[in-house]
Design a protein around this nucleic acid. Structure first.
Length: 139
DNA sequence: GCCAACGTTGGC
DNA sequence: GCCAACGTTGGC
């Protein structure tokens, strides 16, 4: 199983919005970046991801799961853009902030640190374990 | 609110 | 196919 990170600006689409969709999940639409789209093409049912709030919060706030693999993005006619569906799995007891991540040597190579603008990112198993631990999240 | 970094677009 | 110009993102 692979691990990912989904970044969202909470005024646009927040963790609470995601939770409200429940088991049905929701399209991760609106991605207009090839790198991010290519990561979504790699995703398989059941892959896990972090849900990250950018801008004011800058924290990992919860865990999501891929519940539909790559398909056309319903928000555009342009067939270059595709997306997956994700559903909320559970919140982090303690959100893990970007400052915490930057302060941990285990996470110094994270894409979030190296390329903060990429909206869908791969996460290594080591990074996954470290951040879950920091957030008090027991998968 | 500013601005650096990045990706995309379009003229040549 | 190159690269300058532009728009957007997101940390600070």
């Amino acid at each position: 199983m692979a691990y990912w990170l989904f970044k969202s600006e909470p005024n646009t689409w927040s963790w609470d919005d995601q939770v409200a969709k429940g088991e049905a999940g929701e399209e991760w639409d609106g991605v207009r970046n090839y790198q991010a789209r290519n990561h979504m093409r790699e995703m398989k049912m059941g892959d896990k991801g972090f849900f990250y709030h950018s801008m004011k919060e800058k924290s990992v706030v919860g865990v999501v799961e891929v519940c539909a693999e790559i398909h056309p993005d319903s928000t555009t006619e342009d067939d270059r853009w595709e997306c997956v569906d994700i559903k909320a799995v559970g919140p982090f007891p303690t959100p893990v902030s970007l400052i915490d991540i930057k302060g941990d040597p285990r996470l110094s190579e994270m894409v979030l640190v190296k390329n903060s603008r990429l909206s869908v990112q791969p996460v290594t198993e080591e990074e996954w374990t470290a951040i879950c631990q920091m957030g008090g999240y027991k998968g």
